[in-house]
Design a binder for these strands. Structure first.
Lengths: 157, 157
DNA sequence: GTTTATGCAAAACATTTGCAGCCTT
DNA sequence: AAGGCTGCAAATGTTTTGCATAAAC
């Protein structure tokens, strides 16, 4: 889990390493991703936020940047099933990944860190021969806040 | 894990219970889902296959049927991240669910049954107060067949 | 100076919806 | 007979792409 300025430099150096140009648009998108590393933004969200620092950026550039960062393993892309993808920076250099706790009532997204999957991955390798390189685990349910409130909290976007 | 004919009757009776009509289109879609319960079909796939038995069916009807079956808990809908949803019948009456092993080389999808998630869900409840009602776990990696073949097998669609 | 990256607009794509007519109940 | 269900086509919403221009190297 790198601090923000190291994470930014890390991303820039990976881009350079792979002969990608460092444009102000890319810097601006990376900035938004880093400043919102705890949120789970859609491309549209990222687009809107990036416009604050770089008003002329186009949505297509945001998509292309996110695709590039994902291909370099710098960003994780995932979906809830609501039709739009969400993105988040990969905050650590290693593979360990937190899991998402998605509240079906308020739409909020929490996180949970855990290493029990290692056991499952070993069991998979042993029983099926499948070599696991990555995983995606999401839990759906009711967050503690929505459990506390009887019924009024149904949209906290 | 019900046998096919019982599963079919189970689905039909749930439909009746909820006052939904049993149309030949719905029967045809259910038939395709049951006959391909080990595959992970997209809506388009299901549409094409259903046309064999019921050539006049429309794609919208397939989507509406899948949505209905999903709302009744009879079908699971999930996504790999390639932009289209996949569907599979819920073969057992209970909540237990297998996880997907997605080969990033050949695109094949295996399955793995496991109950270790229960432990994680308990840990989540204890540490965060989040009440888990469902989960989705997918593993990405290389299947045993692709590991065996040095490099030629990259598209077995 | 080259080559890549950008912005715009149009295209592509999966999915949803409106509506008149049909079919299950 | 009445209502839900269907097929078609149009609409929607997200993501991708073509192309001329602009910017990074």
């Amino acid at each position: 889990m790198l601090p923000k300025n190291e994470l930014r430099e890390h991303i820039f150096s990976i881009l350079r390493e792979h002969d990608h140009r460092l444009t102000p648009q890319r810097e601006a998108v990376v900035e938004v991703l880093i400043e919102n590393s705890d949120a789970h933004l859609s491309a549209e969200n990222i687009f809107m936020q990036t416009k604050h620092n770089y008003p002329d950026i186009g949505l297509a550039t945001v998509y292309r940047t996110l695709e590039l960062l994902e291909s370099l393993g710098l960003v994780h892309k995932f979906e809830y099933g609501d039709g739009q993808s969400r993105y988040e920076v990969n905050q650590s250099a290693d593979d360990h990944y937190h899991h998402h706790l998605i509240c079906v009532k308020c739409g909020g997204i929490g996180e949970f860190k855990d290493d029990l999957l290692d056991e499952i991955e070993h069991a998979i390798a042993k029983e099926t021969g499948f070599r696991v390189t990555d995983h995606c685990l999401r839990f759906f349910g009711i967050c503690s806040e929505c459990q506390a409130e009887p019924g009024e909290n149904s949209d906290d976007d």
